[in-house]
């Protein structure tokens, strides 16, 4: 404990012990995978939106399994909408699903910006903070 350099070693030992215990307990009694997950996937390989086709009506509701459906009356609005560009991509080709869904409007946007928006705020704040540290130090060195 005398030197700050040894702290990492101590912490590693703690985590290794806990992870080893976790493995042992997993093998003895598997915790099992809960089948009723939030936002489950269902793959429909024939759809142009391939891994992310969640059905639904544009400008209407889409059935997504959210934590608190009563909480957000606009749940699922974003999911089924395609911008003109993505609609064009969808009719022109079968294999552009990821690009289309990553374009604004899609299940990931729905989750990231609407239902778990606070996560995204925190995440960008983390990026912002870390960049503030890095660029502050860098520019001070430059001067």
């Amino acid at each position: 404990m005398a030197k700050v350099e040894n702290l990492i070693a101590i912490y590693s030992v703690i985590v290794v012990v806990i992870a080893a215990l976790a493995i042992v307990s997993l093998i003895v009694s598997p915790i099992g995978y809960e089948d009723t997950q939030l936002y489950p996937k269902h793959i429909n390989t024939s759809s142009p939106l391939n891994p992310y086709d969640r059905g639904g009506v544009p400008f209407g509701t889409t059935e997504v399994v959210a934590q608190y459906p009563q909480n957000s009356p606009y749940l699922g609005y974003v999911t089924a909408y395609l911008t003109p560009l993505s609609a064009l991509m969808a009719i022109s080709n079968q294999y552009l699903g990821t690009t289309i869904v990553s374009h604004p409007g899609g299940i990931i946007d729905e989750i990231l910006y609407n239902t778990r928006g606070l996560d995204t705020i925190v995440e960008t704040s983390i990026l912002f903070t870390a960049f503030a540290i890095a660029s502050f130090l860098y520019r001070r060195e430059e001067e």
């Binding site: 990492i8 939030l38 934590q67």
Partner: peptide
């Protein structure tokens, strides 16, 4: 370095919770 290593148990714990219970709330 420690706080970076500590993200493994943090996120890992949250992920195991989600997988085992189906919720994070």
């Amino acid at each position: 370095i420690i706080s970076m290593l500590a993200t493994i148990p943090l996120f890992g714990g949250a992920a195991i919770t989600l997988a085992a219970t189906g919720t994070l709330s």
